[in-house]
Design a protein around this nucleic acid. Sequence first.
DNA 1: ATTGTTTGTCAACTTATTTGACAAAGGTGT
DNA 2: ACACCTTTGTCAAATAAGTTGACAAACAAT
Lengths: 150, 150
Amino acid sequence: MNSSSNHANTLKKIIDSDSLLLSIGDVANAIDVSTRQLRYWEKKGYIKSKISKSGQRKYTYFTLLQAGDIAGYINEGYTLASAAEKTANNARIMKRLRQFLQTRFDNGYEIEGGYEIDLGEIKDVDAEQHLHIDLMEDGESFFQIKKKDK
Amino acid sequence: MNSSSNHANTLKKIIDSDSLLLSIGDVANAIDVSTRQLRYWEKKGYIKSKISKSGQRKYTYFTLLQAGDIAGYINEGYTLASAAEKTANNARIMKRLRQFLQTRFDNGYEIEGGYEIDLGEIKDVDAEQHLHIDLMEDGESFFQIKKKDK
DNA sequence: ATTGTTTGTCAACTTATTTGACAAAGGTGT
DNA sequence: ACACCTTTGTCAAATAAGTTGACAAACAAT
């Protein structure tokens, strides 16, 4: 399904890499909270971390999003507990969306005048007709429906 | 355009956060290279890093992808110089794709039985008909074309 | 044969992270 | 009012991670 072994992998990773584990300071800076807050939120069970061999917390990108979401609600005046509750639904959606995109961003290739990604089938559309993203060298980018390649 | 102030932001960030800056060890682990390699590749001008206030290298997610791409070609037997050259094209595509997705993933909302994202117009399709991603509570996820909401 | 490329490793120093503790501001309940 | 719980800041002592510079080794290029 993927064109050039190593390239399609990179394509998929634009969503976010499974193998990426973030340090606490980098997460804190990215979402503008303190490391104290991240540790406390974890202690209370609102977020999770993996512990590295050397004993340091490592966060997935998903957890960064989750924590950033919590921080957003806290800034709107919610308590930590209710902020965390509100993010539970968003977390489910994010997981679903991420999984969906990972399966669909799997087939990219060069075309005349640009680059194209085959995103597969569209509901209620002939299965031969696939959704594509075209990134053209003239600067245009768009979704397009056309017959799948083979 | 975005529905709930802080949620649509989270949606957009599933692609990857601009404000995320990664430590050298986390990048090295994610793409399975040594920190020595990352520092050397930077010295030779193949990748870039920002220096934090305290003097530490910080990498964007884009740079992680770039370095991972280089590592992939090196594992296929290319020299560093030719690996870096081969990634230049991929880097352009990644940037274009990222930008495109950032503009399109801007409008998500709850619907009957699930969650929907309006991805906007499709080339050569009536502008009233928008592409959507539907993530249904029954487990189904799909692209769909339907009239835009308003 | 000599030079340049690429990575490993070591040393000395600075910055980050860890846990545990004390403190303080604010809310909750009696 | 009083006693709690929540939430975050800050400090201290210890360990881990990051910095530069140097030496070395494997290998490719000229």
